[in-house]
Every structure is written in C-alpha cells, then in structure tokens.
Design a binder for these strands. Structure first.
Length: 722
DNA sequence: ATGCCCTATTTTTTT
DNA sequence: AATAGGGCAT
C-alpha cells in the first residue's frame, strides 16, 4: 500500500499530529478542521508505519454514529477489515469488558443493561417501597443524584454522612438502589463506566493485560469526557504515555451532564512530554462566518486559544432579521427556504437551529402549510418506544426472571388484574426480604397471601413467562421475538387501541421482529453471550438512529445541541433573545453563560455558505407575551459581518444604541404622530419615532426611555397615548 | 381499571 | 399554551 495516501491529503498541522512518534498528544481541533480525518489517519499511520497490529488499537467515541463512521473510514483508507480493532463508545467498550470479565466485575454473566427510562422506573418503585414521599423527593432528582455520584466514581459506601439531611436521604436511596440492581442483575449506563473502571483498578493482572493490549489509545470529543471516563483512560494509559486525544474546548456544551473541560488541563499535567497540535484551518465555512465565530468566542475566558481561518473567500455576510413576533420569524425563515429551493438548492442542505425544542412548533406549522418537507430531530427513537420496550421487557423477563425493571413494566400490560395493592405488597416483601419481584411473587403465591382473584392473575402471569421461556428454547432469535410479541398479548392490546396510534404500534412490533431477523451477530462482539442477550444489549446501548427515512429531501430542524458535528450550506439560528438564548437559567452564572456562548459558537460554525440569525421583538412563551431583548451574543458579532434585513425597507437598527435617524422619519399622519408620547404596559413610556403600514399591518417605532427603540405592531401591542 | 379533571411545569441529551 | 402526571370518581 502506498503510504503517501495517509499523509498526502493532510495540511501541515494535521500531518504533524498524524505522523508524530507514539506519545501522548492533544489535538485541539476547531470546528470543521478535519478532526475525524486526523483520528482516522493517525490510526492508519500506526498500522502502516509503526506496524502496530489493529488489535492493539483502541479508539473511543461518545456516540455509536461516530464509532461507526470511524471504523468505516479506517477500513476505507486501509482497505482492511477493522474488525479486530476496539472502536466503540465508552459505554459499548465498558460493556464489552464487563461481559468478558463478568465474574471479576462481580456481575452475573447474564446481566442486563437498562436505559435511563428503566432506571427512572426503578427509582420510582424504590421510593414507593421505602415509603418515601416522591413529591418531596422527585424521582428525577434522585436519579440525577445517583448518576452524578457514579460519574464521580463514588459509591454509596464511600459517601460520608456529613449530617446534611438531603444527602443522608439520598444516601439511603442510593444504597437501596445499588442493592436492587445487584439483586436484579441490572446495570445502568453510569454503572457500566464505573464498574469497568473498578474492574481494571482492582484486578492488576487484567489491568496489565489491557495496558499491553492497547498500545495506542485514541479519544474523540475529549472535552466531553466526564470524571469516570477520564479515570478509565488514565488507568489504561498511565505510564505508557500512549493517549491521543482530540477535542475542542470551545465546543464543550455538555457541562450540565457531567462533562469536564478540566480534563484537558488534567491531561496536560498528567502526560509528561505530550505534544499539543492546534487545527485551525477550517474547510467548512466562509470568512464572514468564521470571523463571527472567532469574535464571539473570544468573549470567553480560560480558553486554550484558537482562531479559525480559511482559504475560502469572505462569502456572504451573515444576515440578521428582527421579527415582530415568533410567527413573523417563522414566516421569514420559511420564505427564505422557499427562495433557496426555488433557486435550485436542496432542502437537506438547510437547517433551522433553536435553543429549545418547544421552538420547533411555529416552524413546523409554517413548513406544513407551505408544503415544505421537513424533519424534526430529537423525538423518541425506535427502541425507546413504549410498545418496543414492553416487548423487550417480555423477552428479558422470559430469560431473566429476576429482572425487576422488566417485571414491573409488563406485569400488568396488557391488564390482567394485577393491581396496585398486590404490587405494593410484593414490593414491600421484596424489599424486606431482599428478593426479586419474581421471587416475591412466588413467595406470596406459595404462602397463600393473596386474595383468590389476584392470586390467579399473578399465577397466570408467571405461567405465561415460564411458558414463553420454554417455547422459545430452540428458536432462532427472530422467531423468539415473534413468538413473544404474539403470545404476550401485546399485539392484541395495540390492535384494540384507537386506530392510528395502535396501528403504528403493531407495525413497530412487526418492525422489531424484522430488526431481530436482520440483527447481525457477527457484527457484534463474539463473546460467550446468548444471541438474545446481545440483541437486548444492542437495543439498550444503541437506541436506533431515527434517520430511517432520510431519502426524502427535507429541511432539518433540531436543537443547537444536536447540531454539533453536522454541517449545512444554509443555516438559520432562531430565537436569539435574552432569556431564550442564552437561556434564562444560565444568565446569572458565568460558567453556564460561557457554555451558552460555546453553544452559539457551535451553531454559527455549522454554516457553510449562508447564515441567518433571527430574533423576535415579541414572543408568546408559556402562554404569556414576552418582549425579550436581543441576545447579547448578537452584539458580540462584528457589525461589518452582519447585515440587517427588514422585509419592508426603511427600518432602523434595534441593536444600535445611537438615536434613530430622524431624517428618515415618515411624514404620514395616523393615530400616532411623530414625537407623540406613548405608554406601553411592559416598556413604560416612550416617544413615537416613525409609523408604517395600515390597519392590521400598522406599526410604530417607539423610543422607550428604559427599554430602548422598538418596533411594535399596533394590532398586538397595547399602546396608550399619554 | 379506566377515564377525566386538575395542577404543576416548562434547556440542552447520549449512552 | 400545552402537556404530563397525579388524584379522584365511576
């Protein structure tokens, strides 16, 4: 193979990173600077030049999508199979380790992975069993606490009782939660990481084995690693200095879920002789866009420091549109989209990015009425749908009776007369005697502790599950799924549900059978796990991409968070208003505000050719009108890269603090005269500067004493003449 | 066990 | 405004 293909397509900085001798390395990769390319080529370099066998290479990502892409690109570049290479997500790799060393990890070898939904249910039922008031102790908060502790590597037994009432209660629940999970053979996401860490930490032989095995360790999106993930990487690479991390501190937007930018600084301290390479040449966007991004992010402090540049030209200036309200904003955006399409552009090259999901609505409505195909990201994924989770729970329960999460889920779905009272009694018994729900059920039946009705119902359920277990003994995976879906009564249940919804659910269940048929066991790790367990794990760890029907050319709607890593020729960032973006909850904390700014930076750098920023002067939010000020981020973008747009000409600049240009004032005489003093219920007193339009469209520009200059639609705003 | 009404809530999300 | 979840009545 020609080695030059690994090096030739790279720029100087990329080449420096790729061809460096094996050593610790920090690659600071700006947006659109080719970070995946560097990772892929670095791996190729190790294999071809340093003659490191693929099985000695480890590469870690956060999402399955990124892992798959990396594997695909390595295979493409080297024209080899990357099967023996360990490439995967933190959770996927941790899971693989735990399966392979279940015993040393103190797990049953048929342990099950539960997703956050399962976890929340477990917490809820725990609180119930422990007789803890869940209105005083919201299950979500408890879940958050437990995960937070695990991410810091802290077990219940490590937690000191510092006398704090809140902490003491949490500790009690955390402890009970751990016991329950152990009893049921359940492992949550955070537990995968924590236990994988403990496994290596506490087994010297294993640790040494893997340290030798993974001669080169690569990490993508390093700025998103949390404490336990970094600790795990540390264990694997300590002393070997063989950790190659790629990240961008300016794109760290997941601090709120435990990501620690500080890991970058820790890395610099803990890996002596490491090299730092900055990738600053951007291959995605035009000059104006990069300039805006650079200037904006420069307002953050404690950055590693990077400045993106491009060989491409200046391109179009960024457009700023001030809408009257959120509907006008949607009108404007969709109008621009129609123009783009009319000019021959693809809808799939367009993205509408917003801070919060609730904002998608008016855009959807407008796109709908104009018949523009669109796709909203962020809904439920395939394996998260209720009907699918129910079917999976039957599958899990049939092979693992002690799986309490699954037991709770389907014991009365479809309804079979097992009510709250019976369940409560069972939960208490289970909790008191440290039994699984299945064992508690058996116990109550044996001891005749139930009224006949409930007893029969419960007996019927246990029988059904046992029957499912024996009936599926010798079946193929997809046959098993098919049989369980049918015999569980789920199909019947959903057939009865009102038309459209039930139908879709039945179809999804059929799709599940299909997914099982297509499930490629070879593609998974070929350890000593049953096919079914592999399928169930796949369902938990890879909830499905949702991008099933991408074939249609449609506009992409998503939050700024989910846009990370993507690029579009035409980008609309909407709702740039104080309180929305930056979000209200972040405005009084410097750290969180800086994260919002990074989010804005991520948004801007998604655009390749044209970027539109919009904000509204009035917005209906939570049922009431608000009159938000333009986002502070707008003022952090250089004016010379910004071009303000008004649908109608002759409009002033709401951002400018200068007095409006009186020379342009209209001479029209309506109800409001120029210079007229008026009063607004929110903005207070001000003076009319100009007027425009008639009837419903009539607008006035007012210079408010405290709120600044605003355009108001008379049809919406309540103005009073003073 | 199901359905209806009232109330509380309202960033961001992958595994 | 809209939605989700809990409580209560049937």
């Amino acid at each position: 193979m020609d080695v030059s293909s690994i090096i030739a397509p790279l720029n100087d900085a990329q080449r420096l990173a790729v061809s460096a001798p094996p050593q610790a390395m920090l690659v600071l990769a700006g947006a659109g600077s080719g970070k995946t390319r560097v990772l892929v080529h670095r791996i190729a370099w190790h294999i071809k030049i340093n003659h490191i066998s693929p099985q000695h290479i480890l590469a870690v990502t956060f999402t399955n999508k990124a892992a798959n892409e990396m594997r695909g690109r390595v295979e493409e570049l080297l024209e080899i199979s990357a099967r023996s290479m360990w490439i995967g997500t933190f959770h996927g790799l941790a899971h693989r380790l735990l399966r392979q060393h279940a015993k040393q990890a103190k797990l049953p070898d048929n342990f099950q992975v539960m997703d956050s939904d399962d976890q929340l249910r477990i917490v809820k039922r725990l609180l119930k069993a422990m007789n803890i008031d869940d209105s005083k102790w919201p299950p979500k908060q408890v879940q958050w606490f437990i995960n937070g502790q695990k991410e810091e590597g802290i077990r219940a037994r490590h937690m000191a009782d510092n006398g704090d009432f809140y902490q003491r209660q949490m500790l009690i629940v955390y402890k009970a939660y751990e016991e329950l999970c152990d009893r049921s053979g359940l492992v949550d996401f955070a537990e995968l990481l924590l236990r994988a860490h403990e496994l290596l930490r506490d087994n010297e032989d294993l640790l040494n084995f893997y340290r030798q095995r993974f001669q080169q360790v690569h990490v993508d999106e390093f700025q998103d690693t949390n404490t336990i993930q970094y600790a795990w990487l540390r264990l694997l690479t300590e002393g070997n200095n063989n950790l190659f991390v790629v990240g961008d501190d300016d794109q760290s937007i997941y601090g709120w879920r435990g990501a620690k930018i500080e890991n970058i600084f820790a890395f610099q301290k803990q890996y002596p002789g490491h090299q730092v390479v900055k990738l600053e040449q951007n291959y995605r966007s035009t000059g104006h866009i990069l300039k805006a991004a650079n200037t904006l992010i420069a307002n953050n402090d404690s950055r590693m420091g990077k400045e993106l540049w491009t060989e491409a030209g200046e391109g179009h200036a960024i457009s700023l549109y001030t809408a009257f309200n959120e509907q006008d904003e949607a009108y404007f955006v969709v109008e621009k989209i129609r123009q783009w399409v009319k000019d021959g552009g693809l809808r799939s090259d367009i993205a509408i990015l917003y801070r919060s999901n609730a904002q998608s609505r008016q855009f959807e409505e407008r796109l709908m009425t104009t018949g523009t195909p669109y796709r909203v990201y962020g809904g439920l994924r395939f394996f998260e749908r209720m009907e699918i989770k129910n079917a999976l729970a039957y599958l899990r329960l049939a092979s693992h009776h002690d799986d309490d999460a699954s037991f709770e889920r389907v014991v009365n779905t479809p309804t079979r007369g097992i009510g709250a009272k019976t369940m409560d009694d069972m939960r208490v018994l289970a909790r008191e005697q440290s039994l699984s729900m299945w064992q508690a059920a058996e116990c109550m039946l044996n001891e005749n502790r139930l009224p006949p009705r409930a007893s029969n119902a419960l007996k019927g359920f246990l029988q059904l599950i046992l029957q499912l277990g024996t009936d599926t003994q010798d079946l193929e995976l997809y046959e098993t799924v098919k049989l369980v879906v049918e015999k569980s009564g789920l199909i019947e249940l959903y057939k009865k549900e009102k038309q459209d919804k039930g139908e879709a659910r039945v179809e999804n269940l059929e799709e599940l059978v299909n997914a099982a048929r297509l499930f490629d066991v070879d593609n998974q790790t070929e350890e000593n796990i049953s096919e079914l367990d592999m399928f169930l794990t796949h369902a938990a760890l890879e909830a499905g991409d949702m991008q099933a029907d991408v074939d249609e050319d449609c506009v992409q709607l998503m939050t700024l968070h989910s846009a990370k890593g993507l690029e579009f020729k035409l980008v609309f960032m909407v709702g740039l208003e104080e309180g929305l973006f930056p979000s209200q909850q972040s405005t009084d904390d410097v750290g969180r505000l800086q994260e919002e700014r990074r989010l804005c930076y991520v948004g801007i750098t998604r655009a390749m050719e044209q970027l539109y920023l919009t904000h509204a002067e009035s917005r209906r939010l939570y049922g009431k009108d608000s009159y938000p000020r333009p986002s502070r981020f707008l003022k952090e973008i250089p004016p010379e890269s910004l071009q303000e747009i008004r649908m109608r000409a002759n409009i002033s600049r709401p951002l400018a603090n200068s007095n409006s240009d009186l020379g342009k004032m209209s001479t029209k005489t309506g109800k409001y005269r120029l210079g007229q003093s008026v009063k607004h219920e929110k903005f207070g007193e001000g003076v009319v500067l100009q007027t425009e339009g008639d009837g419903d469209q009539e607008r006035v520009q007012v210079n408010f004493r405290n709120a600044g200059i605003k355009w108001l639609m008379l049809a919406y705003a309540k103005l009073e003449i003073v």
